[in-house]
Amino acid sequence: MTAMVNTLGLMGRNFLLMLQRLGDIATLSASSLRLLVASPWQGRHIVMQIYALGVGSLVIIAITGAFTGMVLSLQGYYTLAKFGSESLLGSAVALSIIRELGPVLGALMITGRAGSSITAEIGIMRVTEQVDALEMMAINPRARIIMPRIIATTLSVPLLIAIFDVIGIGAGYVVGVDLLGVNPGSFVAEMQAKVTTEDINTGWIKAVSFGFLIGVICTYIGYRATPTTEGVGKATTQAVVITSVGILMLDYILTSFFL
């Protein structure tokens, strides 16, 4: 009995904690935007961050994109073949990738690859007192550390997701047409006919929002990490979990707005 009450209590407490976190993230996004406007432009640091986060995630994005497109094509073919509508494969693959899977899977992979490294890096900068060192050299560490990273993720994620989309659709085409024998003309024609500019724009809006979200949450959690090796490890896990959940929730909200 008490065990159950305790478990329920724990669940309730964690739920409230999560709500509080989400509230924190909302206020944080606002203050981050203010920080972005107030900070001096740091082109060089942004380029360095795009290199570390964007270029660094390229390989994993290409691989994920390719396999997503391939499995969508395979799965979609067997479903559509039952209704004699294999010709719809192109649009099925393209629409799923552009509207949902590209932004969401891409952003989740980038969270795992780049988001975790942002949190860990900032956490380590705290442990090794590099943040204080910046402060002692009259550099606002929040502006210097957080701002370039948020800009870098907000810019890199849409670019990475665009690459994910194109590779995914290409891989879907190869599996559908070369392996399963769908007519190449109808694959492409269906795709061009069914995908509208609106679909593509929805994808972009999602990509930009996810990029911003990754930047805000991962920098924040890294910056607030308990400055110990253990604290940084915990913060990194936490950053990935919270960002991933946040992406899925935001995805639902954005989808319901644009459908």
Partner: peptide, 8 residues
């Protein structure tokens, strides 16, 4: 600083 805190 104690651990030097060089920007790595």
């Amino acid at each position: 600083f104690q651990y030097s805190a060089l920007l790595n």
